[in-house]
Design a protein around this nucleic acid. Sequence first.
DNA 1: GTCTATACATGGATAGAC
DNA 2: GTCTATCCATGTATAGAC
Lengths: 205, 205
Amino acid sequence: MTDSMDSRHPPAKAKAKAKARAAGKRQQLTAAAARVLHEQGVERTTIADIARAADVPAGNVYYYFKTKDELVEAALSEHVTHLETLTGRLDQLPDPRERLKGLIDAWVEQRDTAARYGCPTGTLAAELDKRSEGGLDLSAGRVIRRLLDWVEQQYRHIGVADPEGHALALVGAYQGMSLLSNALRDPEIMAREGARLTREIDALG
Amino acid sequence: MTDSMDSRHPPAKAKAKAKARAAGKRQQLTAAAARVLHEQGVERTTIADIARAADVPAGNVYYYFKTKDELVEAALSEHVTHLETLTGRLDQLPDPRERLKGLIDAWVEQRDTAARYGCPTGTLAAELDKRSEGGLDLSAGRVIRRLLDWVEQQYRHIGVADPEGHALALVGAYQGMSLLSNALRDPEIMAREGARLTREIDALG
DNA sequence: GTCTATACATGGATAGAC
DNA sequence: GTCTATCCATGTATAGAC
């Protein structure tokens, strides 16, 4: 008698399928966490909120994530993935100016979300800064650093003086306009500032 | 017998003094709230935290403020006061360019605080946005609006085209550099961006 | 692997003594 | 006007049945 037919010892295929389902739920929870944490903020979001949004029973969450902090980490990695997808797509464009303008376009496209909830990464960075009791987490800082580095590379290709300074100014402008747009609940601020930033890039020597 | 000597009915002077003391404690609590809420964030700050910082017994707080939200409101009004003191001082300067550069200097002077805790008004605005359940509070937005209006006036005096756009860009740059400086824990970002903003004002037609 | 029930801690707010 | 004791809701996390 082989144990491959024994229901108590599922065959490899069934095991793999169960694993895939589990990974699927983990991914569902991660995506839901990214969305809900952005909309409600970290401190005001409960595990139950995320479970509901992911369509997973509340008590089940702890099977996939041991603590709330792990869910926050997962949400953060989700933002990294989004960022890399975007820059990866923009890297296909031949001209670094076009790449930067494409980035700005992507920001402006998200204007309604930004006006309602702020920049996902920026608001998360501000919250995580306060969440870690002087413990110096900086995990959100690393995501912003990554964006900063990519932008700096583009300015370097263009050949401007002080590419790092230009990158700080551009990413800073994005964070600033997101915050203003959110505080005043006005998506048009994003469009307006985006147009200005685009003009500045066009005007680059 | 006059009741002015009756200990159960203190004379007007004593009453006034008690009132002054009460107002003093209220002010102590307001100042402490502004500081602690900025450092720890609204959601992670307890009434007890504020009471301790203000050197007032915990249970006593509710005599001065009925709810935590009222304390947050008080902290916000404290920021308004600071802002008005600053702009009032800058209004003494004859040249609007100097007024704007003075504002930037004030921002840069606060760089260590900004790197550690972010812009007091900006972080508060982001938090309050999430605190009000879609209820559209915008009270922090009004403070930012006030700053925006003052800056716009200066650009108007200078005579630039689109003073509103210039104001959005300047205040946005401030919020952005505060967030970046905070996320990366680097006060020098404030100094660097401040210098750039100052140069831009000097370069204005 | 999935889900329910619940333990346990925290913190906002109130009652009432002084 | 000041302070203590406490109520009560909320939310994280765990135990253990299925």
